[in-house]
Design a protein around this nucleic acid. Structure first.
Lengths: 254, 254
DNA sequence: TGCCTCCTTCCACTGTGTGGAATTGGTGGG
DNA sequence: CCCACCAATTCCACACAGTGGAAGGAGGCA
């Protein structure tokens, strides 16, 4: 029972997916290269996407960019996500109380994708920013916490990808295995892939929902392990609180 | 020279567009109804969209919802929008200074769509929220300011739509005409479609960009016209400042 | 002005998407 | 507990929409 799939639609979406921060303005040639499609095909698809309002053509640059209507997909998605609705106020509260960054993410392909990231900020009290940002799975606490819950088959697939693209794979693999072990034993793991930033993460497994991951991070010069120890309990508590509230709201049921 | 268009892709996008705040969970039946497509077709398209990661299937509800990856379209779009990058900090500054809400929007189909809306808020200093939210063109200062710049043909089309769906059309039409006249004479217009809220808007016409609209609003019990008079100058100044900075950054050029 | 490159349009072919009809599956009622 | 109902999915033959190689255009740079 092969899941039916519409080739044109899939291809059109691949084109949209090619736009990233950093690759914000793409010509048909570049799109053809990245998607592996024939130039003629790309040309027709981009025209359709412009017609549908999802792309804008920038004549001087001979290139396309994502258009505003994609924002309303995001708005509708956020409005409709029970998990996010339940989690957001509690994440905010914790961020404020501990003066740390608190995030919520899910896996998409080989990256983790933030649904929300409350950035604690000295001055502007706190500014809820980046949603839709992506970070690598292999390097982040977020990603490793997710790997701990991923189906073995899927994890194997991804592992192959990582191995292919990371030069220091053996070292990384050991870190990842340790992190997974840590999640299994204690419910959370640490990583600091950005200098001076300590981040930890815990999976949030909810009935009838894909696995979400909560994380907490802060910029500090103190020893990572101590900081992590301090943050772990509140983070786990946050997860449990969200899970409880989610079920209470009838999440995942008729 | 009919613009080539890919039927399947168009239809798939129509399905995505059917999801709105309020219609956040849609079954195949409902989607078929809203898009006018055959149920079998919808079924196949939704499956493709699930495969592509843009929709999630909610088994208990027998329905679909938008999935997280749409957030990254929004993130990439915002990152790539020169207008938004130039405008956002200045909008923030004005909102803070005058303690008002400041927004930036474009037209999409028969609605205005916020790229950004800085909501001034007594307590949380200010919280940059809703982007991707939609408001009607006919009723808002935002929409009417845009109408003033719209190509006559397009305006005529929309006018027909409005007439069909608004019972108090004659009255509305007069308001709209007055607003357009106001934009032509003074560069801005007022409206207060929400009780106790006074809002004004001014078009932002930039080289090689679709028309954007800036708005400013605040909740007050004072007479609308006085408040509007006070806000109009700073709003127009904001627009000019943004236009200047946009050109300086090489916006719209090679 | 003329070359060069990239994008778009053309065209014949094929395979993919289509929608009515039959089937399955899941839910609420008897 | 089983049955009847409704909606979603799968099946199927057909038509035609989408495909990609190759030719034709439109800019940009020298």
């Amino acid at each position: 029972m092969p899941t039916p799939s519409n080739r044109s639609l899939e291809r059109g979406i691949e084109i949209l997916r090619a736009f990233r921060p950093g690759s914000t303005l793409l010509g048909n040639g570049e799109l053809a290269e990245r998607t592996g499609l024939a130039p003629a095909t790309v040309s027709r698809l981009t025209q359709t996407l412009v017609g549908a309002g999802l792309l804008e053509h920038d004549r001087p640059a001979r290139a396309y960019r994502l258009a505003a209507p994609v924002l309303s997909f995001a708005h509708a998605m956020r409005t409709g996500s029970t998990v996010l609705q339940v989690a957001a106020p509690r994440m905010r509260a914790l961020a404020e109380k501990l003066r740390i960054n608190v995030g919520l993410a899910v896996a998409d392909r080989s990256e983790m994708l933030y649904l929300e990231s409350i950035r604690y900020n000295k001055k502007a009290s706190l500014r809820s920013v980046v949603s839709g940002q992506r970070v690598p799975i292999e390097l982040t606490s977020l990603g490793r916490a997710w790997l701990a819950t991923a189906p073995p088959a899927r994890r194997a697939e991804l592992t192959k990808e990582f191995e292919a693209r990371r030069s220091n794979w053996p070292r990384l693999r050991r870190e990842i295995d340790k992190a997974i072990e840590s999640v299994r034993r204690r419910g959370w793991c640490v990583a600091s892939w950005q200098p001076e930033i300590v981040a930890l993460a815990t999976p949030l497994v909810l009935p009838n929902e894909r696995v979400h991951v909560l994380n907490a991070s802060l910029s500090t010069s103190e020893p990572a392990n101590e900081v992590a120890q301090e943050m772990s309990a509140p983070l786990l508590a946050l997860g449990e609180q969200i899970a409880r509230e989610f079920s209470a709201r009838g999440g995942g049921l008729a």
